[in-house]
Nucleic acid binder design. Sequence first.
RNA 1: GGCAUUGUAGCUCAACUGGAUAGAGCAUCGCACUACGGAUGCGAAGGUUUGGGGUUCGAAUCCCUACAGUGUCACCA
Length: 597
Amino acid sequence: MKNVETAYQLLHSALKNVFQKNFQMEVSDSEIQIQKTRKEFEGDLTVVTFPWVKKLGKSPEAVGQEIGEGLQKEISSIERFNVVKGFLNLHFNDAFWGNQFQNVTHLDNFGLAPANSKPRVMVEYASPNTNKPLHLGHLRNIFLGYSVSEIFKANGHSVTKVQVINDRGIHICKSMIAWMESGLNETPESSGMKGDKLVGKYYVEYDKKFKGQVADLMASGLSKEDAEAQAPIALGAREMLLKWEDKDPETLALWSKMNGWVYDGFDVTYKTMGVDFDKLYYESDTYILGKDEVMKGLENGVFFKKEDGSIWIDLTGEGLDEKVVLRKDGTAMYITQDIGTAMLRFRDYPDASSLVYTVGNEQDYHFKVLFKILKKLGLEQAEKCFHLSYGMVELPEGKMKSREGTVVDADDIMAEMKQVAKEVAEEQGKLEGMSETEKDHLHHIIGMSALKYFLLRVDPKKNMLFDPKESIDFNGNTGPFIQYGYVRTQAILRKVEGELSELNYTGELHETERQLIKHLLDLPAAFDDATNTYNPSVLAAYTYDLVRDFNSFYQQCAILREPNNDLRVFRLALTKQVGEVVKKTMNVLGIEMPERM
RNA sequence: GGCAUUGUAGCUCAACUGGAUAGAGCAUCGCACUACGGAUGCGAAGGUUUGGGGUUCGAAUCCCUACAGUGUCACCA
C-alpha cells in the first residue's frame, strides 16, 4: 500500500451520494472541485459549489448549506462546516486526522510505489561535449536529470540513466591541434591539472590563436570571411577531422588520449555531484548507426534526396520545415547521430516505454523534429519520448559565454559552497567530537545541498538567475534549512531511542499538529505531481513547507517535556514521520541528510 | 522579420492548472525564548501580477493587442 484513503477520496464519493439522495443527480468527476481551505477561513477542505449553482437554480449559499448538511450525514467525522460565498468549508474532527496519521505510521513505504512495478524509463542527462569542463548550466541539467530519474523510481518505474557523449567533431579537433602546436606535451600528470581542465585550456588556446591569425590576415587585406577560412590553425583542425574520419592511427591515438583525460576529469566531477549513469553512449559509435537509419528511411520514402546528394525530410505537413538529415558529402550531423542513438537505446532496452531527454530549451525545435522523424521511422515509443526542456542559468550580466570567461565552473562552485558550509559550521561550533573526515564529509553534504536545492527549487522550464556575488544562501528557503530541520528531528529522536511505544493518543490536536498531519498526508500527491510534470521543484516546495510546519509545531508544542505520556508518544511519532518524509523527498532530489550539523 | 517562450514585492522564486483578501525567502524594521539543537519562531512593511481591451459568477492563469526580455530559424553541436 502506498497510501491510506485520503480525505479527498472520502469526500469525493460522499459528494456523489449526496447528489443522488438530495437532488437525484449524477455528478461527473470534473464537476467536483475540492481544495484545501485557505488559512483565513475555518476548515480543512473546501468544496466549490459554483458549478452546480445554475443547475440547481439556487443561491451559492443555499447549495453550500444543503450539500454541507448532506455530507455531514455521509461522513461522521465532519464536525462542522461553513459557507462563504460559494465555498463550502468542511472541518473534520481531531479523531479523523489522528486516525489518518496513525494509518500512515503503519505503512512500510509511505508515498512510494513498489520498486520496479512500472515500465522502464530511460533518462538522458549530462551529455557533455568533451572539449571543455562542466559549468553551472551543466549542473542544472545534471541535478535535474538525476532527480527526475529518482522521481520515476520513487513512482515505481525501472529507470536507466543514460548519456550520449559528444566525443567527435570539429570542437575536439580544435583542442587537439592547439595541444599539438604547443609542443609542450602537457599531460594531467605533468601539469597537475584535472584532465577536462587541461583540454579546456587548449580549447581556449585555439580560440586565441585563431583570433590572432584572423586579425593578421585581415590586416593584410583579406575579408573577414576569407581570413576565417584561411587561418592556419582552422585549416589544421579541419585537416585533423578528416584524418580522424579516415581513421588515421596517430590522430585516433591522440583523440582517445585526450578524451580519456576529459573522462577522468568528468568522473571526478560526477562523483562530487553524487550522480551516476547506467549506460554511456558515444557519438563516435552511434553516428554510423544514424546513417544506416537514414538510408533505410530513404528507401522507405520517409526521406528524400536533393540533386546535390543531401538527404532531407519534409515536415511542412506538420507545421515544421524541411530539414537536412545527412550532408551532401554523406557525413553525419547532430540529428543523424540522435536518430541512431535513439534506435540503439530502444534496441538495448526493449522493455523501455519511453525516453526522457534532459536538454536545454534552446533545442526545443530540434527535439520536435527528432520525435517526428522517429515516429515516421516507425519507432513505437516515439510518442512517449519527452524532451525535458529546461531554462538557462543566467548571470547578472547575461548569458554565460565560455569565450568571454564568464562561465561559472562546476568544480569551482562546488568547492566554494563547501567552503562556505565549513565556515558556517565552524561558527556554530556544534561539531565537537567529530573526526576531520566526518567533518569534511558534512561540509560537502551541506554545501551540495545548498547548491542542489538552489538549482532544483525553480521550475525547470524557466530561466533562472545566479548571482555569484550574493552567492547562495544558507538561511530561509534553502537546502541547509531543510537539513537543519531534519537534524533537529533526529536530535530529539536520539534521546528516546527504543522508547517509541504504540500510538494511543485520541485527544485534542494542537493547530500546528493538525497542520503537520495534513501536510504529511499530501506526500503521495506531491510525488504524483512531480512525476506527471517531470518537476523536482514540486518536491522541494513540499518539503520546505513541511519543515516550516514542523518548526512551527516544535516552537509551540513540547515534545520531550510533554507530561501526558500518550501525547508525548504521539508527538514523537509525528517527529519521526517528518524526519522520514524529509529524508525521502530530499533523497529524490539527490540531497543527503546529515545526522548532526 | 517568422515561430517558440517568459514578464508577479527592491531582489530570487511560489500560487493546487479558472477560485476566496496573490504567498514564501533574502534585504529592512520590530518582537519572543533559560534553547527538547537559535542555521529558530512570531509580526510589520512591501503588489494596479508589464500596459490596454475582452471572455464569466470569478482571471496572475484563457483570448486579442501593444511593449520588453530570451531562445530559435545552419549541410554547428
